[in-house]
Design a protein around this nucleic acid. Sequence first.
RNA 1: GCCGGAAUGGCGGAAUCGGCAUACGCGAUCGCCUCAAAAGCGAUUGCCCUUUGGGCUUGUGGGUUCGAAUCCCACUUCCGGCACCA
Length: 831
Amino acid sequence: MTAVEGEQVASDVYDARALQEKWQARWAKDNPFAASEDPSDDRPRSYVLDMFPYPSGDLHMGHAEAFAMGDVVARYRFQRGDNVLHPIGWDSFGLPAENAAIKRDSHPAEWTYANIGTQAESFKRYGIAFDWSRRLHTSDPEYYRWNQWLFLRFFERDLAYRKDGLVNWCPKDQTVLANEQVVNGRCERCGTDVVRRSLNQWYFRITSYADRLLEDMERLEGKWPERVLLMQRNWIGRSQGADVRFAIEGREEPVTVFTTRPDTLYGATFFVVAADAPLADELCAPEQREAFEAYKAQVAKLSDIERQSTEREKTGVFLGRYAVNPVNGERIPVWAADYVLADYGHGAIMAVPAHDQRDLDFALKFGLPVREVVETGEGAPAETGVATAGEGVLTNSGPLDGLAKSEAIPRITEVLRERGTGDAAVNYRLRDWLLSRQRFWGTPIPIVHCPDCGEVPVPDDQLPVTLPENLRGADLAPKGISPLAAAEEWVNVDCPRCGGPAKRDTDTMDTFVDSSWYYLRYCSPQTDTAPFDQEKVRRWGPIDQYVGGVEHAILHLLYSRFFTKVLHDMGMVDFTEPFTRLMNQGQVINQGKAMSKSLGNGVDLGAEIDAYGVDAVRLTVVFAGPPEDDIDWADVSPAASLKFLGRAFRVMVQAGEASEPYTDPAAGDLNLRKATHRALDKITAAVEEQRFNVAIARIMELVTAARKAIDGGPGAADPAVREAAEVIAITLSLVAPYVAEEGWERLGRTGSVAIGNWRTPDPALLVQEEVTAVVQVNSKVRDKLQVSPEITAEELEARALASEKAQGFIGDKTVRKVIVRAPKLVNIVVG
RNA sequence: GCCGGAAUGGCGGAAUCGGCAUACGCGAUCGCCUCAAAAGCGAUUGCCCUUUGGGCUUGUGGGUUCGAAUCCCACUUCCGGCACCA
């Protein structure tokens, strides 16, 4: 059921809106969720963080789910008595603000900060246990100043550099994109087909951390979702093999190729250079120049989508040159083709058509020879058109003949090393992080270009380089170069080194730079002498639990891991992984599909809250299923959540009215006490295992047990009912903070229910006097016995065999075997 | 194409140590309350049959085991990631 706007499906037990207003005011006054920086505070510290929001408008259902999940974790830590850091801020640079400014003829800051204000109010109403005093916005100069400072440190360490290269260009947004922002050949933001352009751009040298980014994932095993680790591993894409140097006739220097199959070196029958690599230009013989230029023009016209299609037929052109195979001296023709990528490996390959499908496709199209060097027992590739890549025995390979593939690889690598024509090598799919953007609403790159001194860093004491304030509206329209270039008085500066006339770099940083280290800034958001206070980061870091969507599995999480490792190497942090545990919450969808305007299936968070109240909405998203699963709003019932909360609230109110806060629970009804402590035990285990939906199911059972005790048992005044009601308030505070606070108060308690009130179940009350033992005959359940948990195997077997029901199924058959698992089960095997 | 994950009632999901399948909730049916309805409260609810009983059931087919939703093999379908990475 979806709420109709304005319709109030009020509970007749409590007034959600009144409770929200009452407790919001209380929390604003008492600030119960602020992290303590008191050095004498020796409570265990927990750092729980939700991926900070982008201020695109008001909060939506997606935020409702993500932050409800994160808040369960944070509130559980608060309940356990930890000193919890649970901050909030905004990822407030980015393209949508700029587009809004162009449309409204205003400044991006207006739209951005107005939306932040709206979201902040909504978060407060949503009751998330944030420490509001640490709020940050990445578009504040006090924040982005430190992006610039960090950029300069990266620059000094040669981890930030500028190079010419083919880059991904989005024609609509008129900016370059990082590899990670290109999805299926399209701009991840606007869906436009990405084209390749040759431009001079800034990069972070993330590739020099590829091995560590890969290796350190071992320590995240079991703590991060397996699929995220897998995605990162695939993205980094480590390949082990060898570099092999081929002499090129008429060229002094040999050309190196990378191969994962050095064992097939004797099967190389031609050589291919990436058509768009400078090397292809260089190697092209004069008589082939015309054909090559025509081919290059044809390749340049292709979009990335066309280019990357594996359906496409192979194309290429002979360059009129020959390479020499270093192991057998064979001359093989050099071709240029676009199936070889300029920016992977060395931009050139040895082609072994018999054992590589792409090379085979190419060879068959252009009539190049195919020579098998590994006998796999499959059909001949030249005839079947299928390259054989499996295990086999080497042939036609001189000294390698007769070896298995796995033996031949180290052998040939050794030979290459001895002769100085190659060596073992590793390659990564990961490319350097392209960080410059030709847009306005981001962090200016703090470099001055001087005709005499070249790239000159802006001195630290002149940071921040702030954005010019006079650009707005149409000034920001995409022009293919940064809008900042138009701000002449901003661009033209004196060179910090020689004092001569120079120009500022007009590009801004990818906003993923902002989010790569924001978690550190929360530890000391006011620090104005460094990006963060190292002592405080040592106290709080790394993040114990990070919560956010799987859409950042590669982008943000990889970049953040990279930044953390660089900062570690700079001696600024003493850990190397930023996020100890990661939880990916699912999406909220409706009627099987993502919510969208065109489908008209959007569910408005504000309307749901108006109709059912914050607590019911939060309970609904947490109870719907495992945190990582998507929630289909058509499958859930906030009305049912509200009904349950009403039942729970009535238990607390009735217990509060009927008994005193200091009642001794030991005097209460034993059955209810046991139910309460068993529930507490199970709720605790479920929350620890992050199975929040199960924890709520156990709270529901406890409410039912308490209800029954009130209505048909010892009555509301029984101390066990009070105890149950208090446990309900405490456990419910993780998802339904308003009802929990109000219920706690109605129970006569003072102070917030949310802090340090979690209880440990009494082990004596968890012991069961009787358990159910199952009696099976031939594995089918035939009887159930109530037995002591300490029953011996012998006694249980005797009682099972004595069971009349079991005997009925045994009849006159022979008992062949009796399996006893005291005290739970007996299986009598007859035949 | 390659790599990974998933499949449990009408629906969302529980049962992760190989030992009572279907907890909790939705929906549905019946009852109470009501002039009536809604809300609320209570009961029933996996399927089938020859119904005081019995049989079957965790995508399909096989296997291991006294015993399988759970482990193994094959297959089907769906979801996700990568996609000319040498």
